[in-house]
Amino acid sequence: MAVETAEAPASRPIENAVIQTRALTKVFAGSIRAVDGLDLSVSEGEIFGLLGPNGAGKTTTVGMLTTRVLPTSGDALVAGMNVVENPNAAKQLIGVVSQSNTLDRSLSVWDNLYFHGRYFGMSAPDARGRASELLERFRLSDRAAAEIDALSGGMAQRVMLARSIVHRPRILFLDEPTAGLDPQSRLALWDVLSELHSAGQTILLTTHYMEEAEQLCHRVAIMDHGKLLALDSPTRLKESVGADTEVRVAADGDLEKLADCLRSFEGATHTAVVDESVRVYLRGSAGVLPRVVDHAEGAGFTVKDLSLSEPTLESVFINLTGRDLRE
């Protein structure tokens, strides 16, 4: 079941890190430790993911790195600058897309981009050109004059992304960029992010969708209760599960007992009870499903549902915490 983290994950400082946190901690009123001694280093041009369930401290971490949340202790550095000591310079270098639609409702889509450019000191002609250029790139030109409330969720998210890069930030922070989007809009946004990255943009994103972290991120930091649990590339993280197959078994009866029983299954490395099913981690997948059913039913359980997959980042999270990402 719940695996204790043997040691704090390696978070060796990277040379030329563009984002760095050192023992970064935020304690909110009521002594809630939202972020607890976080050490992270993100290098230039990287897409870095913070993965964890709601309440893991991802948004607070981004808040501190983007000057809106004041750290209780520790350091948050952007391009080598402490954001608390030098918020003005830090703000000039970063772009931020927050979780909800914060577009200016009093302005049109085009105006949102134009005035953002003006806030960052662009001349009127520069800001005008940049607004039109970005709307075209993001395939939003036909919406230039639209009111914000008339946009779909996916479009609003694209406008937010376009707005956040008007001033050509070196680092882009995205907080749950695809939360609440339909699958198609999510894919479209992933495409845009991949294109941005291929042009050298450093991106830090938070997500509680493991697919998003797996698809987009070079490295993923898994967080829970304000702490870093693991940090590596998605592939290496998945390898750390120590199995190449995950079988989900839904059955009637005491699932803890079923998990105990399946632990003795041939090839099983470990099991976990999550989300009203038992996860069995195995090496080797050939012909495994019928044998799992036999094993479980032999022990008196009635199997209701069964599925098999490769381990995912969620498996890693379950492995580390005994819970799934949605809990």
Partner: peptide, 13 residues
């Protein structure tokens, strides 16, 4: 709406 956010993120105190 938290619309103020974009202006708060602009480079001024």
């Amino acid at each position: 709406t938290r619309e103020i956010e974009d202006r708060v993120m602009a480079p001024l105190p």
